[in-house]
């Protein structure tokens, strides 16, 4: 269907894209590779296969503690951000919002503000208010950067299904709250799951805000950062990194899958 003479560009472009993908993946794949290497030095030649770095990792209580903190913060941040993001998305897609563009832009500001500036300004406010830094202060920072992501995911989901279903429910006498609960919520569910997973992943990986806003208890990225200075600790950090890698990949694939189900044009809803 395309004009002739396009066979060559296809293969050249295709080859480039494959090379591009390889370059994206290669640096990251060195982490799992050396996490199985039986040497304290991260260098070629490989010295043989070992699982001892994974064992060392599993016995490291400080790390497990940080992991627990990260999960705690991530879960709360995901839930709070998704609630806020869903409410905002509903306002923008279903009702007339006064000053719609400036308000949307305001909510999207965290997407473009350098994190270091958000981090220090929150630090200044928290210390000015005599609030001691804790997992809570990290969580506040994370919610601020997660809400716009959640809102964007939810807007695309809410725009994806028929508004008529909600209107029908309202015409049949359902209250707005019950309409939300019985119509909007089930239809928006895949979007909500996607938002929860994405917000969790963002919070779980976030370093810079946590760096400024953490108190005595550290999250996993903070712990990893503290370990990067010690060469002897590196192999078990690599083991940990490989586990995180697999987990993140799993979460994103799940989120993507969840975001896309049920939005096919054939309109097969849950």
């Amino acid at each position: 269907m395309k004009p002739s003479g396009r066979k060559m560009p296809f293969s050249a472009l295709g080859a480039y894209t494959v090379l591009y993908l390889a370059l994206l993946y290669l640096p990251v794949l060195f982490l799992p590779l050396f996490s199985f290497n039986d040497s304290i030095y991260i260098a070629f030649p490989l010295q043989g296969f070992t699982l001892s770095w994974y064992e060392e990792m599993a016995q490291n209580t400080a790390m497990l503690n940080a992991l627990k903190n990260s999960i705690k913060v991530g879960v709360v941040v995901a839930i709070v951000s998704t609630i806020l993001g869903t409410m905002s998305a509903k306002a923008f897609t279903r009702y007339r919002v006064p000053y719609e563009t400036p308000l949307k832009a305001f909510i999207a500001v965290p997407l473009v503000i350098p994190l270091i500036i958000l981090g220090i300004s929150l630090l200044v406010v928290f210390s000015g208010a005599n609030m001691s830094l804790s997992l809570f202060t990290i969580g506040v920072g994370h919610v601020v950067i997660c809400v716009p992501f959640s809102m964007l995911v939810m807007i695309s989901r809410l725009e994806g299904f028929d508004k008529g279903l909600e209107e029908a429910a309202q015409d049949l006498g359902e209250t707005p709250w019950m309409t939300f609960w019985r119509v909007t919520f089930p239809l928006a569910m895949p979007g909500i799951i996607a938002s929860l997973l994405l917000c969790f992943t963002i919070s779980f990986d976030e370093f810079l805000l946590a760096f400024f806003l953490s108190g005595d208890e550290s999250t996993l990225p903070i712990y990893i950062w503290s370990q990067l200075r010690f060469p002897t600790k590196l192999p078990s950090v690599l083991a940990l990194g490989s586990c995180i890698l697999i987990l993140s990949v799993l979460m994103v694939v799940l989120a993507e899958w969840s975001r896309r189900i049920g939005v096919s044009p054939t309109g097969k809803g849950p």
């Binding site: 993001g85 601020v144 809400v147």
Partner: peptide, 28 residues
């Protein structure tokens, strides 16, 4: 009514962002 509902839905997010984004930048 629409406007009122939309602002009600947006207010938690806006309050959070005013307190944890706009205000801190002002303080900075």
């Amino acid at each position: 009514q629409d406007t009122k509902r939309s602002l009600t839905l947006l207010s938690p997010t806006l309050i959070l962002l005013i307190l944890a984004l706009a205000f801190p930048i002002l303080v900075l």
